[in-house]
Amino acid sequence: MYAFDSRIRYSETDSEGDLTLDALLNYFQDCSTFHSEDVGLGIGYMKEIGQVWVLSSWQIVVNRYPKLGEKVKIVTLPYELKVFLGYRNFAMLDEQGEYLAKANSLWSLLDVGTGKPVMVNEAMHKGYEIDEKLDMEYAPRKIAVPEGGELLEPIVVKKHHLDTNHHVNNGQYVNIAMEYLPDDFVIRQMRAEYKKQAFLDDVLHPYVVSTENDYVICLQDEAGKPYVSVEFQGQ
């Protein structure tokens, strides 16, 4: 298990002073990045070998959103590496050690040049010590997109959406999708299924559908093929 301590910043909170979901996701993403850097498998190493970890799915379950100024611990643990896939849990805990949020994620290892999957190498197996997976209710990776939704105004990918891999960062997709939720909607679970990468100047066409207690937002291309599908469940 890898962990770091932090404190909730003003820039990470909403109008009520609570941590936002996209800030929580960024904490988790940063935690895995710190972990990789500290075991010698970070961005520099991945560029050197011409490979990249691409996120395939997220599941984040929130028990409570911490307040401005709260001290928190963020943890991550890889619990399985097989073939070209990596499975990681995440969690955020308060000062009493209570779980504020838990998450599950699936990553695919790809060759940068070909875009095809490659086998997890010996250095990765050695560097990422395998832990026991967290106790949580694991949801399916696949997200069903219901019919009867609404196709809204398209969004052009800008420079601020991109990460070091030069495609839209996984958190940016979620941040975009959150814009279509009602102001009073409290997210208790978020699932995201990533289908393909979007690059600078690509156009995202949001398809939004709501059911009794959740929203599904599919960001798709002009032909209707999804870049990502995001499901938000309320309380």
Rank of each mutant, 00 (worst) to 15 (best):
K67A: 12
Y128Q: 00
A139P: 06
F232H: 04
Y2G: 02
K196G: 13
R188T: 06
G149T: 11
F84Y: 15
E70L: 02
T114I: 09
N89E: 01
T20M: 12
A103F: 07
P226C: 02
W58C: 04
G171F: 04
S210C: 12
G97Q: 10
D221T: 06
A23C: 03
M119W: 09
E16D: 13
G127I: 06
G50I: 08
M46I: 03
Q220S: 06
Y10W: 10
G171R: 05
L152K: 14
E12S: 06
A3M: 07
Y2F: 15
Y173E: 00
S11W: 07
N63K: 09
L19V: 13
N104E: 13
S210Q: 14
S105F: 01
Y10H: 08
L81A: 02
F90A: 05
R64I: 01
E193A: 13
A223S: 15
P206W: 05
D163T: 08
G171A: 09
K196L: 14
Y128K: 00
G127F: 07
H167V: 04
S210G: 04
A198F: 14
T211F: 06
L85M: 13
E48L: 08
D94L: 00
K102L: 12
N175T: 08
E150L: 10
L200Y: 15
T33F: 08
D5W: 01
D184F: 04
P206L: 05
G113R: 14
V186P: 00
G234F: 05
W53H: 08
L81P: 00
Y79M: 03
D135H: 10
A144C: 06
F28P: 00
L85G: 04
Y180W: 12
V157F: 09
K47R: 12
T164M: 10
Y138C: 01
R88G: 02
L181P: 05
I155S: 07
Y128V: 00
D184W: 04
H125L: 15
T13Q: 01
A3R: 09
S15R: 12
P154D: 03
I143E: 08
L85T: 03
H167D: 05
D131M: 07
S57I: 06
L181M: 11
Y194W: 03
M46P: 02
D22M: 05
E122N: 05
E222K: 13
L55C: 10
I143G: 04
T211N: 13
W107H: 02
W58H: 11
L152T: 12
T20Q: 11
P146D: 04
S11G: 03
Q172F: 08
I74V: 15
H35G: 00
M178I: 03
V54Y: 09
A198I: 13
M124F: 08
K133M: 08
F84W: 13
Q235V: 15
K142F: 11
K195A: 07
M190V: 14
G42L: 05
G86H: 00
Y65W: 01
E95H: 10
